[in-house]
Design a binder for these strands. Sequence first.
DNA 1: GCGACAG
DNA 2: ATCTTGTCGC
Length: 229
Amino acid sequence: MKTRYSHRWDLSPRDAIALQTRLASRVRLKNAVRYRDIRTIAGADVAYSKETDYCFAVVVVLKFPELSVIEEATHVCEGPYPYVPGLLTFREAPPLIQAFARIRTIPDVMVFDGQGIAHPRRMGLATHLGILFDCPSIGCAKSRLWGHYAEPGKLAGSWVALRDNRNRTIGCVLRTKRGCRPVFLSPGHNVTLPLARKIILRTVTHYRIPEVTRLAHLLANKLRRDYQR
DNA sequence: GCGACAG
DNA sequence: ATCTTGTCGC
């Protein structure tokens, strides 16, 4: 699978921010897919090596809602963009795009370990890649980057809205498992928050993290191990 | 100046 | 995110 649009990634933080602001106008927050038509879902993640400066990207495609693995693809590269809050996309998208290039199944939805529109410029990793691939996408982060919220209920499945400074809903804080910290869900591109929540809840099995990104995360760590170390 | 800050 | 084994608790 290849991106429909592309641009440079070696931008200075200042230019990267300007690009995010420009791209933000392209986000579409309506459903481009119906829940009952979802047959495949992709999860992506990147692992890093502290000493070698290498990064290991993984994309896994699962059958939905069965969650059986259909395809896996990886990409290893060196010298990723540094981590800068708000610019995670510039660090993870380049290797992920290469991994996606090795996937032959075009997924109905993509899920990323990071934010969607719950971002200072509404351009988190999931939104940015959703736009470049022109594919419905969801951001499922383990912690907050942007927005305010009240603690969600204690029971699995309970959630509260995540809102920005102007009190607009930009996502939700979802308790996927009782006794566990919640996850931060936000629409990436071409999906509404209700649909994103429905999809993610159907993708959570025995862990706090939905299977798609959890599997990608495990595979990325395995790739780093098997590589050399 | 101080606190916040996806992975 | 990364460096890391055992271990406290349900």
